[in-house]
Structures are given as structure tokens and as C-alpha cells.
């Protein structure tokens, strides 16, 4: 049985000012996402700005209500449950996000902030010390204030605060994107150590393909609120099937001057999520698009360990 399972999850937002008697327009930031996270694994979610990856992260944690869809943790429904049930569930899933400085209160010491979730859940406060040690913040470091810490240390505090409740799942939204390379490597290593030591499962949301490739077991690629491809890491990078996955992998700058991009990317501008194209969302930028793509949105079809949403990828993937 899978661990965390989302089925047809969707969330819409309204755009523009709704005039008197005028129906407000809305669009789906996440439009029918079905995915599973297995215990102890890291699911990478990649895509460009506006693809809905951060909205998806918040939906998975119940931080924003879903318009439709089902979310289960070990078979137990998590959406629309009672407040007490929700609190118990919420302990098991925590969020870590990019802006560590913004996530912390400048007037509270590091220790107080890591203790805060324990207070809220009425738990003994010694969990905070364990969490701080797990992320490598020892002794007097815990009595400092956020302005006394570097970017990497702040991110460690945010991770410690998430760990204090001894969760099973961490949803990480761009956790290393704001960090310099040498610090980024430290945090990526820390996350992998924590996963091994505590058996954590990660949903790792990022636009940085090289980090996702490093840390993930499986990777899902999102475009305009939908998953367009989802496969085990090595399969996805060695043999991307969806034209968008190929474009994304090709466009990502590789730190190797001998593999400069030979072909020019002529893929136009990203679409406006509030005004998505008809048919397949990627067709206006797709070099392979045919008539059918402009009319009908492809379904996400499963073949073996991979799922792809493209009319032009035939079974068994040719």
C-alpha cells in the first residue's frame, strides 16, 4: 500500500476583479494531480514558475483547501476531517520552505522557535534539543537570534523546527534555491542524512533539475497545473518521453563546457496560467504538436513505472 496518496487533487484561484453581476474568472493552479509517495522515498517535483508546484506542496499539507480530490495518508482520509484528527495528522507532515529568514521570527531565539510547535501540540520540550542536534546546531548556537545566523544556519533552524514534532513526511519547497553552492551542498547532505537516520519521506519541490536529480528517487514534471511525466529518476533523465521534459532537461545549464547546447531552443514564452491554451497545455511551445494536440488534452497514461501525458508518445513508448 502506498503511503501518501493524492487522487485528482485540484485547486483554483480567482483572477481579476469581479464586477457587479459579473461572474469572476478562475483558473486551476493545480488541475487534477494524482500521485503517490512511498515510505522513505524522495519524490521530486519540478517545473517552471506558475506550473503549480508550490500550490501542490501546500495542498499536500492541507495548508490551503482543495477544490476537489482525495488525499490519504496510510489509507486514512486527510481532507475534510475533524479538527482533532487533523491535528494528529498534521504532526506527521511538515513544511520546509525557501525563505528561511522570512519563516523565522526575528525577536525569538532559535531554541524558542524550535520549541514552538511542541508547545502547540502540548508535547515535552526536550524534542527541540534533539532536533537542533540532528541538524548540527549545538550548544550556544540555539540561544542566538536569526540575525546572528548565516543563510545556511537559518535553513538548518527551519529544518529543525519541522523535525521537532518527529514527522514522517517533509514537504520541502525550494529548500536550497536561495543558498550558495557550497552551502547548498551542506544542506542537501543534511537532508539525505536525516532521511536515512529517521526514515523520513520527502516531497522535494524545486526548479533546479540538478539538485532534484541528486536527491530524488522519482521525479514528477509539472506544466500548467498538471503532471506531464512521472518516472523513476534515472529513467526520466536518461530517456525523457514528454517533449516538455526534454526541453526542460535540455535548457538546464550543465556545468560542463564540453556539452554546450548545440540546438537553439525556440520554445516561445511560458503561457499565462490564468489563460491556458486549449487541448494540451504545452502545444503552443511544442515542436512536435499536431492538430489533435490543439483540440484534446492528453491523459496521464501509465506504462510500467512511468506515466506520461502526451498524444505522441505511443505504447510501449516509441
Amino acid at each position: 500500500m502506498s503511503y501518501l496518496e493524492a487522487t485528482d487533487l485540484a485547486r483554483s484561484y480567482q483572477v481579476g476583479r469581479a464586477g457587479f453581476l459579473r461572474k469572476p474568472r478562475s483558473f486551476f493552479a493545480v488541475d487534477g494531480v494524482t500521485l503517490t509517495l512511498n515510505k522513505g522515498e524522495t519524490l521530486g517535483i519540478v517545473g517552471e514558475s506558475g506550473c503549480g508546484k508550490s500550490t501542490l506542496a501546500r495542498l499536500l499539507l492541507g495548508l490551503i483547501p482543495a477544490d476537489r480530490g482525495v488525499l490519504t495518508l496510510q489509507g486514512q482520509q486527510t481532507l475534510g476531517v475533524s479538527e482533532t484528527e487533523w491535528r494528529a495528522l498534521r504532526r506527521r507532515m511538515q513544511l520546509v520552505y525557501q525563505d528561511a529568514a522570512g519563516a523565522l521570527d526575528p525577536r525569538m531565539s532559535v531554541r524558542t522557535q524550535v520549541e514552538e510547535p511542541l508547545h502547540i501540540h502540548g508535547l515535552p520540550l526536550d524534542g527541540a534539543e534533539r532536533a537542533l542536534q540532528a541538524v548540527g546546531l549545538f550548544g550556544a548556537m540555539a540561544d542566538r537570534y536569526p540575525h546572528e545566523l548565516s543563510g545556511g544556519q537559518l535553513q538548518r533552524v527551519v529544518i529543525a523546527r519541522a523535525l521537532a514534532l518527529e514527522p514522517e513526511i517533509l514537504v520541502l519547497d525550494e529548500p536550497v534555491s536561495a543558498l550558495d553552492v557550497s552551502i547548498q551542498a551542506q544542506i542537501v547532505n543534511l537532508l539525505m542524512d536525516l532521511q536515512r537516520d529517521f526514515g523520513l519521506s520527502y516531497v522535494f519541490v524545486s526548479h533546479d533539475l540538478s539538485v532534484v536529480r541528486h536527491i530524488s528517487n522519482r521525479v514528477a514534471v509539472m506544466y500548467l497545473g498538471r503532471i506531464v511525466e512521472d518516472a523513476p529518476r534515472d529513467q526520466l533523465f536518461a530517456d525523457p518521453k514528454h517533449p516538455y521534459t526534454r526541453v526542460l532537461i535540455d535548457a538546464a545549464p550543465k556545468p560542463d563546457p564540453s556539452t554546450r547546447r548545440a540546438i537553439r531552443l525556440e520554445v516561445g514564452d511560458p503561457p499565462n496560467p490564468a489563460d491556458p491554451p486549449a487541448g494540451c497545455g504545452f502545444h503552443p511551445r511544442c515542436p512536435l504538436a499536431v492538430d489533435h494536440c490543439r483540440k484534446e488534452a492528453p491523459e496521464l497514461r501509465r506504462v510500467a513505472e512511468r506515466r506520461v501525458a502526451c498524444h505522441l508518445v505511443s505504447e510501449p513508448f516509441g
Binding site: 551542506q186 547532505n189 534515472d234
Partner: peptide, 15 residues
């Protein structure tokens, strides 16, 4: 320290 420099799923080299 770049991901990909050391191969996947192993520890990254840090400074």
C-alpha cells in the same frame, strides 16, 4: 560541490 559532480545519491562534497 555541484550536484552531479560526484554521481547521484552519494554525499556532495562541501566546503
Amino acid at each position: 560541490a555541484l550536484p552531479g559532480a560526484t554521481g547521484q545519491s552519494v554525499r556532495l562534497t562541501t566546503i
